[in-house]
Simulated assay, not measured.
Amino acid sequence: MTVHHLLEENSIANKFVAQLRDSNIQKDRLRFRKNIERIGEILGYELSKSLVYNPKNVKTPLGEAKLDLPRDEIVVCSILRAGLPLHNGLLNYFDDAENSFISAYRHHPNNDEEFQILVEYLASPSLEGKILLLADPMLATGSSFVNVLGALEPMGKPKEIHLVSVIGASEGIEYVDREFPDNSHLWIATIDEKLNDKGYIVPGLGDAGDLCFGPKLQH
Rank of each mutant, 00 (worst) to 15 (best):
S124N: 01
G204K: 06
L139G: 05
E73N: 14
S165L: 04
A151Y: 05
Y121C: 08
F145Y: 00
L152S: 04
T2G: 15
I25K: 12
L20S: 10
G214D: 11
Q116S: 14
G83T: 06
D22P: 08
H162Y: 15
S170G: 09
T60P: 05
K157S: 12
H4I: 13
L139W: 02
L195A: 08
E9F: 14
I161G: 06
V164Q: 09
Y175D: 11
A18F: 06
G168R: 07
L90H: 05
L51W: 04
G44M: 09
L195N: 08
K130W: 00
P61H: 09
G209C: 07
R21Q: 14
E114I: 01
Y53E: 04
N147I: 00
P55A: 04
L51I: 01
V3D: 13
S170K: 15
K15C: 10
L80Y: 08
G44H: 04
G142F: 01
R31D: 12
L152V: 06
T141V: 01
F180W: 09
Y175L: 10
L211M: 09
L122H: 02
N24L: 11
P203G: 06
S50K: 10
L205I: 03
A169C: 07
A208M: 03
V17W: 13
N88V: 04
L211F: 07
V146Y: 05
K198Q: 13
E46G: 12
N14I: 00
N92W: 04
I79M: 09
F32M: 09
Y45C: 08
A208I: 01
V17M: 13
I173A: 04
D210V: 01
F16K: 06
N35E: 07
F101W: 07
V52S: 12
N111Y: 02
N183C: 12
H4T: 12
L62I: 09
G214Y: 07
K49S: 11
G44V: 00
A18D: 15
K198D: 14
F32H: 11
G156V: 00
A104S: 02
M1H: 13
V58T: 13
Y93F: 15
L163W: 02
G206F: 14
E64K: 09
H87E: 10
E153W: 02
I161R: 08
V148F: 03
T2Q: 15
L186Y: 11
L91W: 08
